[in-house]
């Protein structure tokens, strides 16, 4: 796996990490960092624009937080479900939602390696 690039598109990341694409959204969005967290206000106050946000929260408010905080994508850890309303919102707002069976820590480590952190 190619590592240490400064940025990846969401589509490239999904392929490199073998992630399931739940909602494709804007897969050309650039990922420049990462953030982990499940408390929505906490995430909204601290995640940066272009972050891949790793979480277990798959509700409609998580999608709103991703939009408002300008996260590049939502990455659902441990096969967390994306509920129907959230899926609909993600589709209409073009928010990419990816999923993996791995836990948050493992995903963060992998993402960090890919981003050369």
């Amino acid at each position: 796996m190619e590592q240490g690039r400064k940025s990846w598109t969401v589509g490239e990341l999904a392929q490199a990490m073998g992630l399931e694409t739940v909602v494709e959204g804007d897969s050309s969005r650039e990922i420049t960092g990462g953030y982990c967290g499940d408390l929505l206000s906490w995430v909204m106050g601290r995640a940066k624009e272009g972050d891949a946000w790793i979480t277990v929260m798959g509700n409609v408010n998580a999608v709103a937080v991703a939009v408002l905080a300008d996260a590049a994508c939502i990455l659902l850890a441990e096969d967390s479900p994306l509920d129907d309303e959230a899926k609909e919102r993600a589709l209409s707002q073009e928010v990419p939602v990816l999923r993996s069976g791995k836990d948050t820590f493992s995903l963060a480590v992998e993402l960090g390696r890919l981003l050369g952190r």
Partner: peptide, 16 residues
């Protein structure tokens, strides 16, 4: 359980 209630609402508003 929806992910709110972290006690960050007003602090975030002030911060931003």
């Amino acid at each position: 359980s929806l992910g709110f209630g972290a006690g960050m609402g007003l602090p975030n508003i002030k911060k931003y």
